[in-house]
Nucleic acid binder design. Structure first.
Length: 507
RNA sequence: GGUGCGAUAGCAAAGCGGUUAUGCCCCGGAUUGCAAAUCCGGUUAGCCCAGUUCGACUCUGGGUCGCACCUCCA
């Protein structure tokens, strides 16, 4: 039985879907006016993992992750760039998709954009007005009357009095209550037509919170199972979503609220406003995308995650151990699409060793490497032997509020088992279980030999050096052989002599 | 000020009222021409102070420190 920490209850609860076997999940996605940073990467990877685990558990999942493509910052940025809102947002939506793909994040079933759901938002605001929860203020904005909604504060655990006590900014005086928030912003003359929609309250554009309420109910229904997002969205965004949705529909909105912890830099929240952020693409120039994914999943999703090069290096070393275990029992795809493992070469030479090796394509460092296997990898959960002890531990860990650090620990135990026994079954289990997390789906050799940077040796040069060294070894010229190995090591290439020949990897 | 979360070995990070977490690092052994990889073994824990208990890293209370939310933020 899956247990999920529900922010609403501040406790782990048994997960029970509204409709048998179906899960409807909504996650707050990006506001697209800039490149995604590592904090965004965490949301995408974490809820991708959640979604994968729900599917692996047999649920029929409908996953929605929205795109905010209209808001103050977007308008400001577009003006600065002297470009249209649409051009700006489309550019960063494309970039976001590149980043997400690289990280092995599966596309949500729906990726609604706020600008495409304005009619639904207007209908909802109108319903709120009918229900006595919205009013038009003197300045032309339509606001939500927070005091008229009973459970306001139930998600964030705050009372209206607490919130008022903590007010840190001057609030617009046109609001009935300082905590009221905007549903519909009246248009200003200076604004472009692109950001103006007609409404019964006059031209304007939606407030931030209404989009998620409107798109959530449009795509998932008035009442759905899971709503997720970063911990910073708990208040006010998610609190306001509840007020809007329950206020308009007069029924329960979401059963389980999930919030992921922040990525930190030097023990401080990574955020745009603090300016201490690293974009995903920046990090991917230095680290393999799967290493970043592994780094994220190695921590529990609710814990803070400190970013540093040292931690990424550590994650890389750990992931290398897992791939090394898979490499030792050659994993091949069969024509029928199943995966089989053997501990011995099928015939003659073995993939990954110099004698048989094709020189793989060197990746251009300027583009983001996209590994389709990483995205599609969890498709074959039928290959998992769920009765096997490691799989049972893995399942127990995942069912315990998505405890990926524990699940990853099981992968390492399994890797040890693979190395010790050279068991094809164990190797298949390792790959299949890791696939549930969207890990270890690439060819082991491709991972271990990847990461050629600018100015480094290319694969052909490495291969030539290895051949020279093999010749030296045959001639018993160990001094020459060791010199070549040392040179390669200094160039970041590690050699491994095995019974099947010499293999290599990039350090 | 209000509210919430956290403090685990050199670093990272989990579970658990009593029995090896796990990864990286480090040390010893096996293996290797030498290495690497791998295997076997080992060192390094539980912020402080009380309490509950036969027994606490794990529960309770009180401190201390850190972080977050109360403003846009994933």
């Amino acid at each position: 039985m899956l247990k999920i920490y529900n922010t609403l209850a501040r406790d782990k609860q048994d997960f029970k879907p509204i409709a048998p076997n179906k899960v409807r999940m909504y996650v707050c996605g990006m506001t697209v006016y800039d490149y995604c940073h590592l904090g965004h990467a965490r949301v995408m990877v974490v809820f991708d993992m959640v979604q994968r685990w729900l599917k692996a558990s047999g649920y029929d999942v409908t996953y929605v992750r929205n795109i905010t493509d209209i808001d103050d910052k977007i308008i400001k940025r577009a003006a600065e760039n002297k470009e249209s809102i649409h051009t700006l947002t489309q550019r960063f939506i494309d970039a976001m998709h590149e980043d997400a793909d690289a990280l092995g994040v599966q596309r949500p079933d729906h990726e609604p954009r706020a600008t495409q759901y304005v009619p639904q938002m207007l209908a909802m605001i109108e319903q709120l007005e009918k229900n006595g929860l919205a009013y038009k203020a003197a300045d032309g904005d339509v606001n939500y009357a927070v005091r008229k909604f009973d459970g306001y504060g139930k998600l964030s655990g705050k009372s209206l009095e607490d919130l008022r006590a903590g007010e840190r900014v001057e609030v617009a005086s046109d609001k009935n209550d300082p905590l009221d928030f905007v549903l519909w912003k009246h248009a200003k003359d200076s604004e472009a037509d692109e950001v103006k929609w007609d409404s019964k309250w006059g031209k304007g554009r939606p407030g931030w919170h209404i989009e998620c309420s409107a798109m959530g109910s449009e795509l998932l229904g008035k009442h759905f199972d899971i709503h997720g997002g970063g911990a910073d969205l708990q208040f006010p965004h998610h609190e306001n979503e509840i007020a809007q949705s329950e206020g308009a529909h007069q029924c329960s909105f979401v059963n389980y609220w999930m919030h992921n912890g922040f990525v930190r830099v030097d023990n401080e929240k990574m955020s745009k406003s603090l300016g201490n952020f690293f974009t995903i693409r920046e990090v991917l120039k230095k680290y393999d995308a799967e290493v970043v994914r592994f780094f994220i999943l190695r921590a529990h999703y609710r814990s803070p995650l400190n970013y540093s090069d040292q931690h990424l290096d550590d994650a890389k070393g750990a992931l290398t151990r897992l791939y090394t275990a898979l490499k030792s029992t050659a994993v091949r795809a069969e024509p029928d699409g199943t995966t089989s493992h053997s501990t011995k070469p099928a015939s003659g030479q073995v993939a990954g060793y110099v004698e048989a090796q094709e020189v793989s394509q060197v990746r251009s460092p300027s583009t983001i490497a996209f590994s389709p296997e990483l995205v599609e990898g969890s498709g074959r959960t039928d290959l998992i032997d769920w009765n096997e002890p490691h799989a049972q531990r893995f399942k127990a860990a995942m069912d315990d509020d998505l405890n990926t650090p524990e699940a990853v620990a099981v992968l390492f135990d399994l890797a040890n088992e693979v190395n010790r026994s050279q068991s094809a079954h164990a190797a298949a289990q390792l790959k299949a279980l890791a696939g549930v997390l969207g890990l270890l789906q690439r060819d082991a050799q491709a991972f271990l030999q990847g990461g050629a940077g600018e100015g480094g040796l290319d694969d052909a040069a490495i291969k030539a050096q290895i051949e020279a060294r093999i010749a030296a070894k045959k001639a018993k010229d160990f001094a020459a052989a060791d010199r070549i190995r040392k040179e390669l090591l200094e160039a970041g290439v590690v050699l491994e002599d095995t019974a099947q020949g010499t293999s290599w990897r990039r350090a």
